[in-house]
């Protein structure tokens, strides 16, 4: 198995950070708008996210980054515009259906099932494809021989939590809770993962661990959109960066291109910073 510190390029591995990804788009956003009262929170966003890539979204406070993610996952209904996931519109779908299509989200405070063992945490996700809509079968017991339980064990091993699988999730360290949350997303067969400031408030050490983990799961072909304030994270992970200011995309390109862009500097200086 690949050592996390130096990920081996495998088949399906994302291109190294800083090179623009090519290939088909897993997500296409067209003419997205969202207004909160008098505030244009999202202003005509057009954006394509390449399959298997890590796409960063940066921008000053209040730029509309979180609102954008919330639109993608169905938490906020956009006023106008189209969101196509794998070529199909997700508009008007119930939230859990959007997620069943393969979009997952991690939260700033890791959201897990605190009173349950890690195995149970991940088994729930492994069951979600089959049982997510609704399934009533009280007769078959859920035990170690169940395919969902087995899948959970293997995902836990992938993220390095195998030896804690019987521990209750609330006893994990914050970094491990993040790992568990990612394991939940993997087990739910997410194809696109949305991360809103995954390293906010973390030490440099924990930040680096998170970067390693995100790289690791990228090798499995999972596409990611990361909102980040920490430029270190952006530059070590993202192939492509979109800069948001006042709800609009003002720059877009490789991290290098974006860094040199005068409009970006202006947005940050004129913004809340």
């Amino acid at each position: 198995m690949a050592d996390v510190q130096t990920p081996q390029p495998e088949t399906g591995a994302p291109p190294p950070a800083g090179t623009l990804p090519t290939g088909e788009a897993i997500l296409q956003v067209k003419g997205l708008n969202k207004r909160f009262g008098g505030l244009q929170a999202i202003n005509n966003i057009n954006l394509d996210v390449a399959k298997g890539s890590i796409h960063a979204i940066i921008g000053p406070n209040g730029a509309g980054k979180s609102t954008f993610l919330n639109c993608l996952i169905g938490l906020i209904e956009p006023d106008t515009g189209e969101i196509l996931f794998e070529g199909k519109s997700i508009k008007g779908l119930k939230q859990h259906r959007i997620i069943q299509r393969g979009i997952a989200r991690v939260f700033q405070t890791p959201q897990i099932f605190p009173g349950m063992s890690l195995t149970e945490n991940v088994t729930i996700a492994a069951l979600s494809k089959r049982d997510g809509e609704f399934r009533f079968n009280p007769v078959t017991p859920l035990n170690a021989s169940n395919s969902a339980t087995e899948e959970a064990q293997s995902v836990l091993a992938q993220v390095g939590l195998a030896d804690q699988r019987d521990v209750e999730a609330e006893h994990l360290s914050r970094g491990d809770k993040r790992r568990l949350e990612l394991a939940i997303c993997i087990a739910a067969h997410a194809k696109l993962l949305l991360l809103d400031e995954p390293t906010a408030g973390m030490s440099r050490h924990d930040t680096n661990r998170t970067i390693d983990l995100l790289r690791l799961i990228s090798e499995k072909g999972m596409t990611k959109i990361v909102i980040e304030h920490d430029m270190h994270v952006v530059f070590s992970l993202a192939q492509r960066v979109s800069v948001l200011a006042q709800g609009a995309v003002i720059a877009d390109g490789t991290p290098e291109e974006v860094r040199g862009n005068p409009k970006v500097k202006e947005a940050y200086l004129g913004g809340a910073h």
């Binding site: 729930i124 979600s128 494809k129 997510g132 739910a188």
Partner: peptide
């Protein structure tokens, strides 16, 4: 029910319904 997949879903509602929703469960 307690020992079934259905029961696991019910118990996870008590633990964290938001996470459950965001895992694609109705």
């Amino acid at each position: 029910i307690k020992n079934s997949a259905f029961g696991l879903m019910l118990r996870s509602i008590k633990e964290n319904p938001m996470r459950l929703q965001y895992t694609g469960v109705n």
